[in-house]
Nucleic acid binder design. Sequence first.
DNA 1: AATGAATGAGCGTTCATTCAT
DNA 2: TATGAATGAACGCTCATTCAT
Lengths: 239, 239, 239, 239
Amino acid sequence: MPEKPSRLTSRLESLRPETPVAASQGAKPKAAKARGTRTQSAREVRSAARKEAILTAALEEFSASGFAAARLEDVAKRAGVAKGTIYLYFDDKEALFQELARSMLSPVVGHIETFATTDVPFRMLADNIVDVMVREVLTTRRKDIIRLIISEGTRFPALAEFYHREVLSRVIAALRVVLQRAVDRGELRHKALIEFPQLLGAPLLVAVIWNSVFGTFSPLDARAMLKAHIDILLDRGGA
Amino acid sequence: MPEKPSRLTSRLESLRPETPVAASQGAKPKAAKARGTRTQSAREVRSAARKEAILTAALEEFSASGFAAARLEDVAKRAGVAKGTIYLYFDDKEALFQELARSMLSPVVGHIETFATTDVPFRMLADNIVDVMVREVLTTRRKDIIRLIISEGTRFPALAEFYHREVLSRVIAALRVVLQRAVDRGELRHKALIEFPQLLGAPLLVAVIWNSVFGTFSPLDARAMLKAHIDILLDRGGA
Amino acid sequence: MPEKPSRLTSRLESLRPETPVAASQGAKPKAAKARGTRTQSAREVRSAARKEAILTAALEEFSASGFAAARLEDVAKRAGVAKGTIYLYFDDKEALFQELARSMLSPVVGHIETFATTDVPFRMLADNIVDVMVREVLTTRRKDIIRLIISEGTRFPALAEFYHREVLSRVIAALRVVLQRAVDRGELRHKALIEFPQLLGAPLLVAVIWNSVFGTFSPLDARAMLKAHIDILLDRGGA
Amino acid sequence: MPEKPSRLTSRLESLRPETPVAASQGAKPKAAKARGTRTQSAREVRSAARKEAILTAALEEFSASGFAAARLEDVAKRAGVAKGTIYLYFDDKEALFQELARSMLSPVVGHIETFATTDVPFRMLADNIVDVMVREVLTTRRKDIIRLIISEGTRFPALAEFYHREVLSRVIAALRVVLQRAVDRGELRHKALIEFPQLLGAPLLVAVIWNSVFGTFSPLDARAMLKAHIDILLDRGGA
DNA sequence: AATGAATGAGCGTTCATTCAT
DNA sequence: TATGAATGAACGCTCATTCAT
């Protein structure tokens, strides 16, 4: 069913833009003049592209090596710029890291609440969530951001708070609405989920971590597992 | 109920020794010749204590800073030895890290299979597992090892494999036995769990990560969540 | 007496133009073709103004930070031009520095010899010198040039030689004439001054350095000190 | 006369030790345990020697290039140590610089007041001061320290204050005593010197600066100039 | 065995200089 | 002519590792 993009799916998918997009569009090095919506000059376009290239490269390097071990020179090389160029766009290594995380998260932020406002049967919603998670998280670089936050969150409290405030707490609030409604409608029996919506997301976390840490020698069928989880919660497939 | 250590509990708890124990017995610096089982000389005892002190210190530093950012000098200081002393017991930083992880995991390994051989009602077993996890993982440094493996696993494939082979795959196998039996006995309806025992452990992972990353400003009642999860799986507390 | 600008004073003061004046007239960026004396086009005027702005800014930055630590970007910012523009007028940082020093010194050069040709009583001349030094050196940016030459002279032998040749040796020669005449006339007893006219200027150096280094927390009344010095040389104010 | 070291001379010369001596003798890297006067271990001796070697090398490099342009690697090379070794003894480049200045000044500090307590005819004292200045300042590295303070004082206010407080203000106070006594005894006519003892020292400053900046191509006979200055103040050699 | 001073490769960051626009 | 983004050599500083004591 999720194969044929329903209206719901497409709405849920609107968190799409996977490539890191700086909050400020016309990424003028260091001084991003947000001058409304205007046609960008060639230079502005090039600048924005460069910033994105750096962010993309940074994501790859940070994912592969972690914050401390990642070398800015490698980021530069991968982005096809000189070492110094990074500093035209970011104050320092830490700022690059934090902006990276934020820029990957920001597009998500705006679309989270849609969950709650979408009025569809819970099982359909659940199926779709699984689908979106697989397509938008597990098979994209967003899973790497999640891992980075797990790995470095303790060392970057500001980032952890940002992620918690802008993403997790909203997701949880939205899920609570959805779950409450499902319970009210008799679509879901487990009221405990309302208190701990984390239980709904837990398998996603397992999938992300498992496949990144053990995936090479023991891959896990994330989609199947997520579906199984939903089935359990909905008493489906039990026989 | 778990308050009064039942026979089961105590067996499960026997994975106790939380302090890192060197895999090699006598811990002769560098050339650990395990010369049969012999009463250790005073020097050997002192040496083993030193190694343990270093491992304990290393765990704390690695947990706090991650592998790359942790400073061996800080480890030494915390362990009360000189920087050079570390190299009498470990080849290099990486070896220290790997031995640390292994030494923390090893005691666990031996006791995992007990799960499968313990023949108790599933719901009792499940409750006990929750209890043990909280006491032996979430409130001890073992949670830090889990986080370290999540954070550094990609950079240390050997460690990831070790952990997968010696811990996870065994735990999963044991859980499968237990879960199969529970299904067979009609104690559990969700056969899907047999295919994905990870779903049983997922909330533990969430608890570990959540409290370490967001715990300071948004603590999560891990025990309550784990219990809620069990209740859901067992259809308890629902109605 | 020096209060009412006598003819002497005004002549001494003619070393006035404090703003740096480019040695090259029309200041055509880089290729300063001095095309005879012609009315400068609007563009040439603007160009000359720009060069001056850069020199003024450079003086401030070099004075504040020294040659090595001064940042060309700051010079540009202060001059209100882009970084690259500096290179339209100067070959590199060092050339900017040397031209700066030369341009500040050049106007002085032309007027030094006037000392010798002015035929006034020594004590009047001496008083005026004090006055001019205070007004034209100590309270202007020329003191900064002196400090810069002291600080950087060793690293810029060409500059040191230039300063010595074009300024110091001339001043000294002129002073010798003046001093000799004063001795001959019986206005001055200390023949040794003729050999070491530096002794006449020494207090000026002290004033410049003292006030720039210790001035903030222990200011020195330069004028009073210079006057005291003259009084000593002239045996005034003693009894 | 100054040729035959009189008692006075030797007293004045007691500011001798020219090689930089760290305030704390047994220069244990970073943690200088000042444990009274004790025989230093071989290691302590070697450590102190190293610190001195670094300071000496630093003086040379800083003198030659100025603070900003001096390269720590060159300091290390000159001192015969590795780059990192410097950081065992000094926190950073700035600390090295400040400690250098202080260590060169400290031995001076203790001996300044002797001027005032020495009760000899002023002209003898003056001659001796000239002599000591030439031997202990102009022909040693102390002149470099003076130049460094002139050059970098503005950028290192703490150093400027230290120098002013510990050296200059004391010298000036001591000179005032001496000068006052000379005036009282009728040995000196110029009372103005009491207000501005700087006038006594001004030629020394000129000599230091002149010879370091123009010395190569136009050396100045500092001793002769200083003597001439004294002669002027004392009305000697006039007729 | 234990120490900790010493090393030097390595990395983050700066900034003079260049050059496409 | 003027700009300022881009470059990359250079340098301060760190820290894993070694080794004389």
